[in-house]
Design a protein around this nucleic acid. Sequence first.
DNA 1: GCCAACGTTGGC
DNA 2: GCCAACGTTGGC
Length: 148
Amino acid sequence: MAFWLFKSEPFKWSFEQQKACGADGTEWSGVRNYQARNFMRAMVLGERGFFYHSNEGKAVVGIVEVCGLAHPDSTADDPRWECVDIRAVMDMPRPVTLDACKSEPRLKDMVLVTNSRLSVQPVGEAEFAAICEIGGLDVAALAGTGKR
DNA sequence: GCCAACGTTGGC
DNA sequence: GCCAACGTTGGC
C-alpha cells in the first residue's frame, strides 16, 4: 500500500469542502502535470493520502482515501489528463506545517520538502507515520477505518 | 507582491 | 532534438 499527498490551495478547494462531499468524494480534477498524473494512475482503491493546504496554511490538515481509480478528468478538454476520486477520512488533530516537516530530520527527503511544486506526490510509509505522529493522529485508529 | 524553480511550448 | 521564451506554482 502506497501513501500519497494531495495539494490544494484552500481558497480554491479546501479540506472543509472535501469533507462536505462525504463518502462519495470528488474527482481530484485540474492536474495538468504528467508526473502528478502518473502518480494518480498508480493509485489503488483504499490507499491513503494527506490533504495539504498550500499557500495559506501550508500544512497537512487531513487524511483522504482513494475511492475511484484514474479516469479522464472531466474538466480537461484533452483526454490525456486523468484523475482519481478521493474522499475525506479524518482531520489531522493538529495540522502539520511545512515548517514542522522541514525541521523534522525524518522528513528531510520528503517530496514536499525537496520539490514543493509537485501537486500530487508519493509519501514514504515512514514519512506517513512520522507526520501522523507529529499531528497527534493515532495510526491504529486510522487503520481501523474504512478498510476495503 | 515578488521571485525562484520548474514544466511546457514552439521555432529552428 | 535543442533551447529560448513563456507560464505557473508556491514559499517567502
